[in-house]
C-alpha cells in the first residue's frame, strides 16, 4: 500500500509518463472487479487512454470499508486500440466481526462493439466477460453456494452528453449483466435452488464539474440465491478526481445492504488508479 501510494504520488507530480491520446477521464476509473467503469458498475468505456492504434496499461487498488467487513481489490489491465480491455483483479474480503476471509480472482475481457463515448449520437456499447474463481470455497460451500467458479457476461452502454446540467457534461451508463454470482462471486456461484443465469441491471450517472472532477451515483441490482441470508442491491455516491492522465483517485459512500445476515452495511470506498 505504501509503495503504491509513493508510486502514484510520483506519477502525479511528474506527469511525464506517456499516456494515450484519449481525452482525460474517458477511460473512467477501475471498478472493484478490475474493469473500466465507476466503482461497482462496469461501463462501456475502455480502460486507460489508448485511442486508435495505441495501447495502455492500468493498475489500481481500492478498499471498501463497511460496518462488519472490508474488501481489498487490486488489479492490472491492458487496453488496445480503444477496442479491447484485458484485466485481472484479486479481491480479499475480510469478515471483521465473524472472523475469516473470502477471496477470488477475476479475469476479464471487454470488447468495444460500436459508438464513441464523446463523438457519436449512439452510445458507446461494449460487451464484457468476467471469469471469477474463488480461491477458497470452504465458506461459500458451507452457506450453500453451488460452484466455486462462475462467468458473468455484461452488455454496457455509455454516453457523455455535453453541456447538460448547468453547462456541465453528464455521463450516463446502463449495464445489463447475466450472472449466477452470490455477492459478486465472493460467496460462490448459484445455489441448490437457483442454478440459472439471471439478468440484472446496473446504472451510473455522473456530472463533470470540469475535465478533472466528476460526482456521480451508481446502482447495482443483485441476485438473491442463498437461503442463509438475503442479498440486497448495492448503491453508492462517488467523486472521481482525474489528477492527470496518469493518476486518478476515487472516493465513495457505499450502501451494500445486508451481507451474510449482518445488518445494513454502509461505509466508504477509496481507490487509486495509475495509467501508462
Amino acid at each position: 500500500m505504501k509503495t503504491w501510494f509513493f508510486a502514484i504520488a510520483l506519477l502525479s507530480v511528474s506527469g511525464a509518463a506517456s499516456a494515450g491520446s484519449k481525452i482525460i477521464a474517458t477511460g473512467g476509473v477501475t471498478t472493484i472487479e478490475g474493469n473500466a467503469g465507476g466503482g461497482i458498475v462496469p461501463w462501456a468505456v475502455i480502460n486507460g487512454y489508448a485511442s486508435s492504434n495505441e495501447w495502455s496499461a492500468t493498475a489500481f487498488t481500492g478498499r471498501v470499508a463497511i460496518n462488519n467487513f472490508t474488501l481489498q481489490s487490486t488489479g492490472v489491465g491492458i487496453s488496445l486500440d480503444n477496442t479491447w480491455e484485458f484485466s485481472y483483479a484479486r479481491q480479499h474480503f475480510a469478515l471483521k466481526t465473524i472472523g475469516g476471509s473470502l477471496s477470488q480472482d477475476i479475469f476479464s475481457i471487454k470488447y468495444h462493439l460500436t459508438g464513441e463515448l464523446l463523438y457519436s449520437a449512439l452510445p458507446q456499447i461494449s460487451l464484457g466477460v468476467q471469469h471469477k474463481r474463488n480461491r477458497d470455497f470452504t465458506l461459500p460451500a458451507a452457506v450453500g453456494a453451488q460452484r466455486a467458479t462462475g462467468t458473468d457476461v455484461y452488455l454496457a452502454a455509455s454516453k457523455l452528453l455535453f453541456n447538460q446540467v448547468a453547462g456541465r457534461n453528464v455521463l450516463l451508463n446502463g449495464t445489463l449483466r447475466a450472472t449466477k454470482a452470490n455477492q459478486t462471486g465472493l460467496l460462490g456461484f448459484g445455489s441448490a435452488s437457483d442454478k440459472h443465469y439471471q439478468f440484472l441491471f446496473e446504472g451510473s450517472a455522473a456530472i463533470f464539474v470540469n475535465y478533472n472532477l466528476a460526482f456521480g451515483i451508481e446502482f447495482k441490482q443483485k441476485p438473491d440465491n442463498l437461503a442463509f441470508a438475503a442479498e440486497q442491491h448495492w448503491r453508492d455516491v462517488f467523486v472521481a478526481w482525474f489528477i492527470n492522465k496518469n493518476v486518478s483517485l476515487t472516493g465513495a459512500y457505499v450502501d451494500l445492504g445486508n451481507i451474510a445476515a449482518q445488518g445494513s452495511q454502509t461505509g466508504y470506498y477509496l481507490a487509486m488508479e495509475a495509467t501508462w
Binding site: G20, S51, S52, N53, G167, Y211
Partner: peptide, 30 residues
C-alpha cells in the same frame, strides 16, 4: 483516425483553457 481526432480535441481544450473560456462555454463549443 480516432486518435487524430482525440489529439485535435485535446489541442482545442488546451487552447480554450489557456484563453480562460468558461467551462460551460467550452462544453457548448465541444
Amino acid at each position: 483516425s480516432l486518435a487524430d481526432y482525440d489529439a485535435l480535441v485535446e489541442g482545442l481544450i488546451k487552447v480554450m483553457q489557456r484563453q480562460q473560456i468558461s467551462i460551460t462555454d467550452q462544453n457548448a463549443l465541444l
